[in-house]
Simulated scan of single mutants.
Amino acid sequence: MSSDVRTIEWAGDGLRLLDQTLLPARVEYATVRDVDALVDAIRRLVVRGAPALGVAGAFGVAIVVRQAAREGWDDARRDAAIARVRAARPTAVNLAAGVDRVLPFIAEGVDAVVAEAQAVLDEDVRGNRAIGAFGADWILGRLGVDRPLRVLTHCNAGALATAGWGTALGVVRELHGRGRVELVYADETRPLLQGARLTAWELDQAGIPCVVQADAAAPSTILRGLADVAVIGADRIAANGDTANKIGSVGLALACAAAGIPLVVAAPWSTVDLAVPDGAAIPIEERPAEEVLAWGGARTAPGGVDAFNPAFDVTPARLVTALVTETGVLEVAAGTAPCRRARRRCRRE
């Protein structure tokens, strides 16, 4: 992605967001200055992706504090508004973590909150670069082939989903920088087409060869031997390594296991929720039925039919070959490094 395009940044009096609902047709920004606009932007996916949501949550507290001072709110109303931001999307743990990190700075004033939120953003960019390097090293070492690789990815875990560079796509970008990418298969990611609209746009901007495929084609692509590795992001990872990611990820994981190729999950350590023992305890967001039942404003299903529209699924740890964070690589499926025990060891490395 072009270096002059920023997904999220503080604009002095509000949060400036690249409106991802308009991509790839238009590159436009929205500046949010109140809690209603921020919650709406989060829920409508103007800003999305677990790391970016963490940054939005941190700056969101600053927005609330500014609005509370401007409109004369008491502490109870201010705290209720912060809770709305924190709960705007329940599956991605980073959103709540970003909010919680800056809460202690409220007593020091809005400038202190903004400074800590900026630290969250800066750490994410640095961490993404490390994820890219660790992931590329591990993949090249694991595959042991001296040729460019065919990589499959699902949804969008690039610069658009983070404060910069990307997690899963950060790994791809690092591989590309080393001359080791032949082709990227970008799943379209139904029903909102984050892969077709966002991932393909990022790859095209970066000059990385890619094709878009239907989600249902991905397992066949893997089983036909057309992909060497699948690299995806995550919205929450349980203590045992179970991983929540965009709906459709489980199908990739099963196909990877059947084909004997690695499934690599790339995510910042903040996505690991040690308070959640396993995937069964991860809340799964369900989104509006209209996303499935209609397209372009026209209904595509019979009028009397409803929809089931979970935004995420959970891949069991036994199917996750490796978890790449900014602290290193955990080989989850091997059972040698569950997240709860691995944190200290990985940080030492």
Rank of each mutant, 00 (worst) to 15 (best):
P191D: 05
D19C: 10
L152A: 12
A80Y: 11
G241A: 09
A80H: 09
G260P: 15
V329E: 07
D242C: 04
S3W: 06
D79V: 09
R26I: 07
L193H: 15
R197G: 11
V324M: 04
G304Q: 08
E349Q: 13
D34S: 07
A83F: 04
V229L: 02
V61G: 08
G207T: 06
G179V: 14
R345G: 01
V171T: 07
R6S: 14
I261C: 04
V171Q: 03
R345N: 00
N309R: 08
G135H: 12
D122P: 01
R89S: 12
D40E: 13
S220G: 15
D111K: 05
R347E: 13
N245Y: 00
T336K: 09
R78C: 03
A56I: 10
D74Y: 00
V47E: 07
A244Y: 14
A218P: 00
V229G: 02
C339A: 15
A41F: 10
A97N: 10
I131L: 07
I42C: 06
P310F: 09
C256R: 07
A112F: 03
G135R: 02
D100K: 13
V265C: 10
C256D: 09
R150D: 01
D74H: 02
E116W: 03
V46Q: 06
E182A: 10
C155A: 03
R86W: 09
T199I: 08
G170E: 13
A52C: 05
G132F: 03
D306P: 07
L53V: 11
N245H: 12
G296F: 04
R142S: 11
L121H: 08
V35Y: 04
A218Q: 01
L121C: 00
I63A: 06
E71K: 09
T327V: 03
A216R: 10
G304H: 15
R142W: 11
E349G: 11
N240Y: 04
D146W: 05
V250I: 11
R150P: 01
G141Q: 13
